[in-house]
Simulated assay, not measured.
Amino acid sequence: MLDECERSVVVAPMAGGVSTTALVRAAAEAGAAAFLPAGYLTPEAVHRDLRELSDTGRPYGLNIFVPSRSAADVTAVEAYRARLAAEADRYGVELPAPRLLDDDHFAAKIELAVAAAPAWVSFTFGIPDAGVVEALRRAGSTVLVTVTDAGEAQQAVAAGAAVVVAQGGSAGGHSATTRPGGYLGDRGTAEVVREVRAAVSVPVVAAGGVGSAADVHELLAAGATAVQVGTMFLLAAEAGTRPAHRAALGDGGATVVTRAFTGQPARALRNRFTDAYSAHAPVAYPAVHHLTAPIRAAAARAGDAGALNLWAGTAFGQARPGTCREILDRLG
């Protein structure tokens, strides 16, 4: 999978504006694989970014969210919406009507991926259909699927995935689990890597909890062919991380796994919002994501980290500012 790359570290796709084309390009120039996140973007924006990266002539990856196949519980979503009214008042925003289903323009993004044929296309939040995987393979892309256990890995390989990304519970941002209701995020990445390697014969990329070269080496020793890292690049000069998020990474504290922001389990820095709403958020991605979007946007404009989704893995305390190349060099 990484034959084109000099490094064993992969720069993870971080949606929401963090993984810019500048970050992906800088990683490629430094000899590492990096993924452009298509999540939350319009097809037009994805097309523009793909064209920009294709023009560099360097290999890059694209990450796509697999849409949910079932609608959220409308009663649970409405109840959460009512609970969030206090936050809407605090920030002077209106909460949208519930959007129970949203495929994030999945079909259009697959068409763009087939046309652009990036070196790698990865999926999270589920297993894509075999026909989708085959279309990407025929276009020339290597397909990766993010998994959190052996069963998901076997499903991914059955669908045609050439590589699986074994995500531990220590990873920052959204978990790829297909069983979000019972997800605790309490399994170490090395454990997940070993379990997945025993279940499938394709290469395994490790993801989660990486803060140093020693962590990278540990996961390679556990059997990973490469190690995907996100949190350490939140402070990269080329990243689009919000100022409040950058500042919060240096404030200490701890991370928690929460559905409060999006309805899908995700690891974030603990803040006022996670304390107030984690126990009440339903399993309802992306309905909860759409509900909290105006609150998060208002908090970002105000520089208020208390209501921001401050995605971060457990190793966030080791993140240091620098260029993408400098951070890659620190990771070995």
Rank of each mutant, 00 (worst) to 15 (best):
A26P: 02
I295D: 05
R137P: 03
A82S: 14
R187H: 12
F35A: 07
G322K: 10
L219D: 07
A315L: 09
G39P: 03
A236C: 04
G263E: 06
T178M: 12
A38R: 08
V11G: 04
P128F: 01
A287L: 14
N309P: 13
G31T: 15
S175K: 11
L23M: 14
E191K: 06
I127W: 00
T177P: 07
A302W: 06
I295E: 05
T75C: 08
R246E: 01
A71N: 13
I327Y: 06
W311I: 04
A85G: 02
R301L: 15
L219C: 10
L310G: 03
R179S: 13
V132I: 11
A248G: 09
G151Q: 11
E195H: 07
R301C: 14
V145M: 12
F233V: 00
T255I: 04
R137T: 13
A224Y: 04
A116P: 02
G172F: 12
A30N: 15
V288R: 15
L136Q: 01
L112S: 09
G263W: 09
G317L: 15
L101V: 15
Y60L: 06
A162I: 04
T225F: 02
A284C: 02
G61Y: 07
V164W: 06
I64W: 05
D103P: 01
R99A: 15
V283Q: 00
E94I: 04
L331W: 07
S170N: 08
R69H: 14
D186A: 04
D102Q: 11
L291Q: 05
G182W: 01
A207R: 07
R90D: 06
V205L: 12
T42E: 12
R296V: 12
V257G: 03
A207C: 11
V210D: 01
A222P: 12
R51Y: 04
A176W: 11
A159N: 03
E4R: 15
R51D: 08
A260L: 12
I295G: 08
D49I: 03
L308R: 01
G209T: 10
G253N: 13
T292E: 05
A206Y: 03
